[in-house]
Amino acid sequence: MSVKCAIGLMSGTSMDGIDLALLDTDGDMVVRRGPAFFVPYEAAFRRRIESALDTAKGIEHREQRPGDLGDLEREITLRHADAVARFRAEHPRWAGRVELVGFHGQTVLHRPKKSLTVQLGDGPLLARETGLAVVFDLRANDMRHGGQGAPLVPAYHTALAHALVDAGASQFPICFVNVGGISNITWVPARGDPVAFDSGPGNALIDQWVAGQGGIPFDADGMIASEGGVVASVVARYLENPFFARKGPKSLDRGDFTLEPAEGLELADGARTLANVSAEAILKAAEQMPELPKCWIICGGGRKNPHIVADLRRGADAMGSAVALAEDVGLDGDAMEAEAWAYLAVRSLAGLPVTFPTTTGCHRPVTGGVIVSPPRGQSSSALPHDFV
């Protein structure tokens, strides 16, 4: 497979906006990272997506769009097209090189036990709006082959791990930790397929807590938590959840963990306790790794919460492992998932596996994604849409 220039688009479980990243890659071991870009969602639109999570609970077939989900899907897609247009305008030297887009969409329902996952995002519409080939719906084929449909980033983590070891920046085995709304880990050995699974709640419970108790969308830099303390009994209740005893591969929906165990805590104590829950859930994942990692590399928005990171460092140190933020080893912890979607788009185009039995539980390594091209002769949109 030749090297292609791809844009990855990710709107994750934190629902805070669109991450965009550019990559030159062959979908295998060639990875040259380009610029990244973030377009935040305004508070009203974020609330609209949060409301959609309740609407989506009634979906029984992944093509269904009850209520206003059809309209929301169109607007989400247009916002992604707008992000691509703005990125290309700000990075003109890259604009003409882009060949395709990896489009995640917005997950509103994930029920792996029912082989059901729903991401709002219209691939053909995005292709028409951007004038670029689009690879989307990357989770469904994995589920058709017995997988959980998540996590999908491990293939990219594997390429990054080999690059880090080749550069002398780390040693195998390496564990990548993505602390998003839900946290997931990828354990990468020197040889063989990666091992990956969702590890537990990440930022989602903290965000829900401070929004409900303090009317604040998230705990910026852990400032609220810095005024509180860890309530160990609440942490213990969370860690008693049967999810943690289940063997991987395993994945979570945003609603699988709730705030019920934290009810009655003060605002700051709740924020600090939930940060500890996130860290302890990640550390507990070591029980299901073939070997303790030499290094945990922390990515995603949760790496900006100093309490999560400090708790991880303490726990990892007790195991004899090191903890590094993505930036400590020359990576971009904000852009990594968007980069992964660019990587997976090229990998899909090449027909290479995007999931493995050790990452999602699929019966065999499988590729995935639907590839659509823009109408013949169409040029990409030059102007962004107007969102208020």
Rank of each mutant, 00 (worst) to 15 (best):
A95R: 09
R139Y: 07
A161D: 11
W94Q: 14
V84E: 13
A127I: 08
Y156M: 00
A81C: 06
A83Y: 06
L125P: 08
R111Y: 10
P173A: 10
T130V: 04
D68H: 10
D71N: 09
G147V: 00
D166N: 10
F172S: 08
A161T: 05
L132F: 07
R111I: 01
V135L: 06
H157E: 10
A150E: 13
E75P: 10
H145G: 04
Q171T: 14
V84T: 09
T130G: 04
A155P: 04
T158R: 13
Q148A: 06
V108Q: 10
Q106G: 01
R97G: 05
D122Y: 06
F136C: 13
L100W: 08
L152E: 14
T107S: 11
F136E: 11
D137N: 15
A95G: 10
R139V: 02
V153A: 14
E99Q: 15
D122S: 05
G70E: 13
E75M: 07
H91R: 10
A133L: 03
G146C: 07
L120Q: 09
L126V: 08
P124M: 00
H61R: 15
H157S: 06
A133K: 10
L160F: 04
H91N: 15
G121R: 02
L164C: 04
E75A: 02
V165A: 08
H162S: 01
F172M: 06
H104S: 12
Q148G: 00
V118S: 08
V165D: 13
M143K: 00
G105F: 07
R88G: 03
A89V: 01
H162T: 00
R79P: 11
R139E: 12
H61F: 06
I174F: 08
G102W: 08
H157D: 13
A95L: 12
A83D: 13
A83N: 11
H61C: 03
E129Q: 12
A163M: 09
P66M: 04
L152W: 11
L109M: 12
